[in-house]
Amino acid sequence: MDESGERPVDRRGFIKGSAVGAAAFAAPGKMMNERTDEAEVHDADAHEHTHGHGHGHDHDHDHDHQDVPSDIALRVRALESVLIEKEMVDPAALDEIVDNFENRIGPQNGARVVARAWVDPGFRDRLLADGTSAIGELDYLGGQGEHMKVVANTDSVHNLIVCTLCSCYPWPTLGLPPVWYKSSAYRAKAVIEPREVLREFGLDLPEDIEVRVWDSTAEIRYLVLPQRPPGTADMTEEELAELVTRDSMVGVARVASPSSGGGR
């Protein structure tokens, strides 16, 4: 598709730390120290308390009380309880948000959008012309999906989605992003070396296929419309939706033909 007027690549003038990022991507098992200095100080305090407590105080022993949660868990607990107390948030509303994301919102929604586009050319046209309103036809709008742009893979163009600055992602259609999407390495490398990133995901694209990288923002989110795989002519819309994976809608994979083992 011709993406008139919008340049897909690098609209944000990234990039800091891309070299380290790429190194981390190459060695995903390497653990980094996640704490801020401040957090470490708190942590040290916590250890000291625990230590003193466990050695010789005459009140209760270590095993008589509950395990103290990690510093980060306590920080969240503090935020939550202060904000609830001030009635700035309603605990039931917080539970509902989590429940929605754990049980209702996820890539199965995006898969239905894709399958509909495969079987309904009119929907496909509307989807590519105005992603937000077409996705709205299926009711998959909402927080972080208010402004959607759908980009179609073709025989000559492959699209890839990233958020170089943080982790913007189309929640209503894909749910929350996977860990790798949030990694420094992916965020940095997807724009600089998209083909290499795709190779790491096992997708080796021929040079004559153009790769377009779309950098998501807080304002606009992208969804890749993958190509319908061969061997699916007799499948229903529901069956097709089963084939569509999250990765294919981010652009790091293609939708596999059912004869080759189906979707992951």
Binding site: V20, V179, S183
Partner: peptide, 20 residues
């Protein structure tokens, strides 16, 4: 970005620490 500047590129597993 601050974490990366401190030499702590995230593999994504510490994302929620930054979130907090």
């Amino acid at each position: 970005a601050a974490a990366e500047a401190r030499g702590e590129p995230d593999d994504g597993s510490h994302y929620y620490h930054h979130w907090v």
